[in-house]
């Protein structure tokens, strides 16, 4: 960074350092972004700064589903068009965006904000498990869909939730996402694990 320090003014330097902290942004990209901001009209720069501030100051967690939102409850939880009897449980807010893009799920969500992983110091008390059980116990829920990622930690989280829900509300149906081949993919290029799962989960035609 020494050569750059010699040519950039302090405020520019500061902006480069801040961009550099962002995920996926290296020193070169940070420079490029900073000089881009330098050239943009003041209004655009102000809008960017304001957007960043708004995210921090106006975004809250939905008291129902724990998703990030600017109004409580969030638009999905407040919607009367959605089926509040079906809850889809996901690890992160981004997972909701992916599921919403499908337009095929009409129920509501619950965000755990993580998975159980003792190595990372995360037990079930550190993610939004109690909040989920509260919703299930409150009644009106007929199905909980566990949409964890197919990792060891995702699987263990799934097993734990299944047990807890079954204990607290035995009548509620608990399901998980199917595992197997992705659409449009080639059998030949599928990895062994995926193929094995797909075989295990085969269905009558």
């Amino acid at each position: 960074m020494a050569e750059r320090g010699a040519i950039a003014a302090a405020p520019v330097e500061k902006l480069i350092d801040e961009f550099n902290k962002l995920p996926g942004i290296g020193p070169k990209s940070a420079q490029r972004l900073a000089y881009h901001v330098l050239r943009t009209p003041p209004d655009d720069a102000r809008a960017l700064a304001q957007a960043i501030l708004d995210v921090k100051e106006r975004i809250i967690f939905c008291s129902v589903c724990q998703n990030i939102t600017d109004e409580d409850p969030c638009s999905i939880c407040a919607s009367t068009a959605r089926d509040h009897a079906a809850i889809c449980v996901v690890e992160e807010p981004l997972d909701i965006l992916a599921l919403e893009r499908t337009r095929s799920f009409k129920g509501v969500y619950h965000v755990l904000h993580g998975v159980i992983s003792p190595l990372n110091g995360i037990t079930e008390d550190d993610i939004k498990v109690a909040e989920l059980l509260g919703r299930v116990r409150a009644g009106g829920v007929t199905e909980v869909i566990l949409a964890m990622n197919p990792t060891l930690e995702g699987d263990v989280t799934l097993m734990t939730l299944e047990r807890r829900i079954h204990r607290d509300a035995p009548a509620v149906r608990v399901t998980r996402l199917a595992r197997g081949l992705s659409t449009g993919s080639d059998l030949e290029y599928a990895d062994e694990m995926t193929l094995t799962r797909a075989l295990e989960g085969r269905q009558p035609v």
């Binding site: 037990t123 097993m159 047990r163």
Partner: peptide, 19 residues
């Protein structure tokens, strides 16, 4: 180890045991 230190409960072992 966390259970030993009182920072988790033995009940949390169940899913790891199954796996």
């Amino acid at each position: 180890r966390r259970i030993g230190e009182g920072r988790a409960t033995p009940e949390q072992l169940a899913s790891w045991n199954e796996e």
